[in-house]
Design a protein around this nucleic acid. Structure first.
Lengths: 192, 192
DNA sequence: CTTGTTTATGCAACGAGTTGCATAGAAGGA
DNA sequence: TCCTTCTATGCAACTCGTTGCATAAACAAG
């Protein structure tokens, strides 16, 4: 399980409340690890009772109080231990690929709109990543001499950018294939 | 949930037993959807009681009997329905990315071996995909006029190949970054 | 003849992750 | 004034997925 560790990394980069963490999981660290606020609150509670993180009640004006979490020594140790143990290269779960293979037993051209929708979503994500890269790493306001943390964040973001670009190219390939099948007569037997 | 649908697609491509399905999920359809045999047997049972699939007891010599499943009309309908409803573009879960960002708070050069291991694993996978592509689609024994099903399987496989190539390039980038940080003094504060 | 491997199926328990719902104060708009 | 949105936290129930274990027949190796 890596949600604990993702939270540790995020809290080391900057302490924050469960709510703030759930916002970060909608961007930044959320680009490669998703979590809902429910999960985050539950895990935070466990991490606190395990002594991985410390809590500080922060009264606020004009909004509800919050609990600000920060990483304790035991949490740092747990992260370090995890960093040193090997993990399995992750396997992908791509339901769109299942749909594409399934289209052989249905109408392939009916999938075109769906694939176009995915294309737009990935295109938006790419634009979003590129804007973030310009803002934090390559733009005029970016640090001239980035520290280790910034360089590592940047290389992870470059991974996200590469992923989206690859995906967009592939979706173009998928669209071309589906359109080719749409103009030719279907050879796989459709539903009886 | 898409495991049901992945199983439907696989059974439409060729009927088979739970055991055979679990083998297919180690290759082919397993390239983009993973499942253990436990999960498969449980879901098959549910699908059967829902009338999505039919069973046929097949006695075998020299090995235990098996239950061969094939897709029933209701299963075909369920697949068709699923194909026509939109799905969310999937979000990635990349624990290696969490580790890389976490390395800022540990020793970045300690991650090099781990990243190299992932590089080898993805390199093996790419070779495996390319061999499959040559065997089934681009080699001399491949069909000269592939049908819709084969063309769709091929475009999915091309996606896998593109993913592995992109990942290998990115891992090279990661390794270069980690090595650069290893030779320079660390600027993020390490564990106290 | 025992041990290990392959085919083949399954239960039980747990942990991870999702969905629906609930609460509550303050701000801002219709 | 009411309705919605934002911040902030949480419970309960459920589904999904993993891990460990168990069974059983046949074959191959030692």
């Amino acid at each position: 399980m890596a949600l604990e560790h993702a939270i540790l990394v995020s809290l080391l980069e900057r302490p924050g409340s469960g709510y703030e963490l759930s916002r970060r999981f909608e961007r930044s660290i959320g680009y490669f690890w998703t979590a809902t606020h429910q999960q985050i609150y539950r895990v935070l509670k466990r991490m606190e009772s395990d002594g991985w993180i410390d809590v500080r009640e922060v009264p606020q004006q004009a909004r509800p109080d919050k609990k600000e979490y920060s990483v304790a020594a035991r949490g740092r140790a747990a992260l370090s231990e995890w960093l040193h143990e090997p993990i399995e290269p992750e396997s992908v779960r791509h339901d769109l690929a299942v749909k594409i293979r399934g289209a052989a037993f249905d109408d392939p051209s009916a999938l075109i709109r769906e694939v176009e929708r995915h294309h737009r979503a990935h295109s938006d994500r790419l634009a979003h990543y590129l804007a973030g890269e310009r803002r934090d790493f390559t733009g005029p306001d970016a640090p001239a001499a980035p520290d280790a943390g910034q360089q590592l964040q940047h290389v992870v973001l470059r991974g996200g950018i590469a992923y989206e670009r690859m995906t967009l190219d592939w979706l173009d390939d998928v669209l071309a294939t589906l359109r080719r099948l749409g103009t030719a007569p279907p050879s796989a037997d459709p539903a009886p």
